[in-house]
Computed example of a mutant assay.
Amino acid sequence: MDNTTNIALSRIDVLTRALEVTSNNLANTNTDGFKASHSQFSEFLVKQKGGNTVPGGREESYTEDRSVYQDHMQGPMHQTGNLTDFAINGEGYFSVRTSQGVRLTRNGQFQRRADGTLTDSAGNPVLDTNSRNIVLRQQDEILSVASDGTISTQEGRVANIGLVTVDNLYTLQPEGNYLLRPTTQTRNVANKEIRQGMLESSNVNAVSEMTHMITIQRDYDLNFQLVQTESTRQTNAIDKITAEPNV
């Protein structure tokens, strides 16, 4: 396999990853609390064998898949009217207790189990400011949540929804479509703003992602054609050499 093919294949490998990321973004355009991901790649140069070591020497340009990062920009809010739907305006994440440990989320589509435990859509208990499960009494009918997360019923204040964050949002590791695993120490958000009866929509820009997907697909096709053309050229050259009579 020659250098031209290797260079094209390095580009195809990166584009394949970028296509997967973009496709996942588009698939979650309507997933509440979803944060779009973006692939990051860069060029790296490799000196050709026998190439000049001085500046301006012969070098080959390859493409390297560097990382995939999340866009934590807040998505638009939409009203639902459900008493157990909550949206965060500004910084912070809800904490939920999963079988794998505490996870963070911006998806505030919660529900109340038969035993009164407030959970997310997957049944993971929502945590308060002291990292305890929020449990409401079965007889509590009136439920209101202030902007600071204070939950009140007809009996008065019963709990306070916790909001946490981390110093570097890019250290959060996505799990599934709406959960994030903190890899560094979390801290409570000082100024909380929670809105009841609303949800935060996905921050995916469908038009932008679709345009990006078309660009990736065109680039992929061009590089794939280059690989095929180079393969055909090499095959023809080999056939020509083997067909020549021995002198």
Rank of each mutant, 00 (worst) to 15 (best):
Q138Y: 08
A114Q: 15
V126G: 08
D71S: 07
D140M: 06
G176D: 09
L180I: 02
V158R: 13
V135S: 13
G101M: 02
G92T: 04
R137H: 15
Q109I: 01
I134C: 04
Q139D: 15
D115Q: 03
I151Q: 02
G56S: 04
R106F: 04
V68M: 00
T98F: 04
R181G: 03
H72A: 02
L180E: 09
R132T: 14
D85R: 05
P76K: 11
V126I: 15
N133V: 01
S95H: 00
G51E: 05
T183M: 12
T105V: 09
G92R: 07
G51A: 13
E43F: 10
T171P: 00
E91A: 14
R132I: 01
T105I: 06
R103M: 15
T80G: 00
A159K: 03
T165G: 01
G149A: 07
N133Q: 15
I134M: 01
Y69M: 11
Q154C: 03
G75C: 06
G92P: 05
L127D: 09
G90E: 02
Q74I: 08
V96F: 03
Y93K: 02
V158Q: 07
K49G: 11
N52H: 04
Q138I: 12
S152H: 03
R97K: 15
L172V: 03
E155L: 08
Q138E: 14
F110R: 05
G123E: 08
N107C: 02
V46K: 10
G162V: 10
S95N: 07
Y178V: 11
K49I: 11
P125W: 11
Q48C: 00
V102Y: 01
L179V: 08
H72F: 15
L179A: 06
M77R: 04
I142W: 00
D128I: 12
N168Q: 12
P182Q: 06
G162S: 07
S99V: 11
T105F: 06
E60G: 05
R137W: 04
E141L: 12
R132A: 14
T63G: 00
S152M: 12
S131V: 05
V46T: 14
L127Y: 06
E155Q: 15
F44Y: 11
I151E: 02
P76A: 13
G123W: 08
V166N: 10
T63M: 11
L163V: 12
V102P: 01
T150Y: 05
E43R: 08
P182H: 05
R137T: 14
Q173S: 14
R58V: 11
D140P: 03
Q48R: 13
R137K: 15
T153F: 06
N89G: 12
S99L: 07
V46W: 00
V96T: 04
S61V: 15
S95W: 00
Q139W: 04
R66K: 10
N133C: 00
G108T: 06
Y69D: 07
P174W: 07
N124F: 13
L45C: 00
G57C: 03
E64S: 10
R66H: 01
T150A: 15
Q70H: 06
P76Y: 00
N124Y: 14
T117G: 09
I142F: 12
L45V: 02
G50M: 04
G56N: 03
D140R: 03
T171N: 09
G81Y: 05
